[in-house]
Write a protein that binds this DNA or RNA. Structure first.
Lengths: 230, 230
DNA sequence: TGACTTTATAGCACTCGATGCCAAAATGGA
DNA sequence: TCCATTTTGGCATCGAGTGCTATAAAGTCA
């Protein structure tokens, strides 16, 4: 069985050296966030997000409804997985960039870098993103989750151009960048493209060019040739 | 009393000419959307959005809880008022622009035009936008409402550059434009600026310039001088 | 082995938003 | 007065989410 403490499967607690290794005490958790997420995503795919009840998820996992809410604070949050960790990565990417690299280049590279996933993760990610960008309840919730994302970007922009991160400039860049990333994700999740980072990269280049019309036409015609041709 | 049929206060039904004037039949509505909205916004301001219950709103208006949901399909929707009408205006503005005017200029002018309000409306609008951009439940719901807005813009962009409106280009422009508009609104609603259209105009100019760093610095320094100076 | 502490869980009661259903009230017309 | 029409109100129901409490499972220490 899975779902035991990180220490192992009922073995002796780690006693070694001076390292303050965490010794688990008390009753062991009967499941994990990952286990719940897998079950829930299966049900979401099979029955739809709205038709799946928390009771149903809990029953499928073998826990009580009340326990579910101790692992995830809402049904919506299940779809988001470990999003918080990605915010940290984004901030690191943005703050770690050389000061002389153009701001929008840093932004593009950072978003691309934080969205590089292994082939194994892409399938599940596509399911998650497909849900987030199509189920109304999740579309709604996304605005809340992405608020933190915007704050990270706005802080970065404010650090580059001066002034408070609440100013019009940083806020506009942050929200426009968010929209750009969301568009790339939605296109990737709902269409037949395989290249997520490519979509993100392209979208941010369009943004950085101020959505130059000629540039957009070229991008659109490449889309067409890639979809129909070859 | 207000809240009667458009025809008047119990007067004779309009019988004139061949015009298919709507003759009201059946029981008269006991209130209006506007009346409910006013009461609700008062309560939202006084007690906060979450602390205000639908029962409370209904009681304040003098209707039943069930009737409330016949006027607004959710508590959140009250804050949005007659948003649908604005979508029509936006589409008209975009589609009515001359073909040789640059795309991003059309977009900027259209958004500015649809957000020109009289002095009398601005106070209530500020309350609405303040709620929408700060209360989590409303931030969430905004994503759903703004989806339609994005579709209008994406259709316009697709018409300009060719290709489907679901393509990466139109979707990216639409969502980035939405973010830009949202940032301008939030800055106006939460800060001390009076000039809503000015904020929107400036934000879209920044976007159209591809968020040029020098341009952003100038904008930020103007912010500072306007806030502190004079 | 038997307390004792710690941690996770289950179950219950409750609030609130939202929906479906049906009876009752109000209105104009025949 | 009876009828068709429309709005309203009340009720029952569902589902998400929360607070509270008792209990189960684990390690520790004597």
């Amino acid at each position: 069985m899975t779902g035991l403490h990180p220490a192992g499967t009922g073995g002796a607690p780690p006693v070694g050296g001076a390292a303050p290794a965490y010794v688990p005490r008390g009753r062991r958790p009967s499941t994990t966030r990952e286990q719940i997420a897998r079950q829930a995503l299966d049900l979401f795919e099979r029955d739809g997000f709205d038709a799946t009840t928390v009771d149903g998820i809990a029953a499928a996992v073998g826990i009580s409804r009340r326990t579910f809410f101790r692992y995830y604070s809402s049904k919506r949050d299940v779809v988001w997985g470990e999003f918080d960790a990605e915010l940290v990565r984004l901030r690191d990417q943005l703050m770690g960039a050389p000061r002389d690299e153009p701001m929008m280049d840093v932004l593009r590279r950072a978003v691309v870098a934080t969205n590089r996933f292994g082939a194994g993760e892409l399938d599940e990610l596509r399911i998650r993103m497909g849900l987030i960008s199509s189920v109304p309840a999740l579309v709604a919730h996304s605005a809340v989750r992405y608020t933190e994302w915007c704050e990270v970007v706005a802080d970065f922009v404010a650090g580059r151009i001066g002034g408070p991160s609440e100013g019009l400039g940083p806020q506009t860049v942050a929200r426009a960048a968010l929209g750009t990333a969301m568009a790339a994700f939605a296109c990737w999740a709902n269409h037949d493209t395989d290249d997520l980072t490519g979509e993100v990269d392209e979208a941010f280049r369009l943004l950085g060019d101020g959505f130059d019309e000629d540039r957009l036409r070229i991008s659109a015609s490449q889309d067409r040739s890639r979809t129909s041709g070859t």
